[in-house]
Amino acid sequence: MALFVVLRAAFGYLFLVLMVRIVGRRPGKQLTPFEFVLVFYLGGLTLTGMVGVEASLSSAVVQIITVALCHYVLAELRFRYDWVAQLLDGSPLILLEKKQWRTKTLSKMGIQDDDVMDMARGQGIKDLSGIKTAVLESFGEITIVPEEEGEE
């Protein structure tokens, strides 16, 4: 049925958005090979359910339009409402502040001090004492604010 083609596409898109959000963000600027597998595998499996037995061009066009429309609506809602943005992207999280680790945040997000130090080294910071604040951004990157000179 034509309606099912649209519903399957919308469900597939929204379900993947939820899955990717639930699986969580990992620190780093690029996808690791491990995450590549996840992205392609999830995409491929969703596709089998979305396409079903209807492999016609018109079904594909309708499903692409449906996914595009869902994406547009989500992007629009994200822009208009802060709570939607937070729901979709999450909140930036402080990992280190005032020489204190946020231990619960680190364990919940699966981040170790090594991950923070990785990013700090990139900015020429020699050790953890040179970090004023470390923030896990909602897009997965760790931002380091260095300790200002004479501040320690």
């Binding site: 937070q86 999450g90 909140s91 930036p92 999280l93 402080i94 945040t105 604040t133 923030v135 604010v145």
Partner: peptide, 11 residues
Amino acid sequence: AIAVGENLEFQ
């Protein structure tokens, strides 16, 4: 102060 925008309650 740094503008981080953390919302720990939501998280």
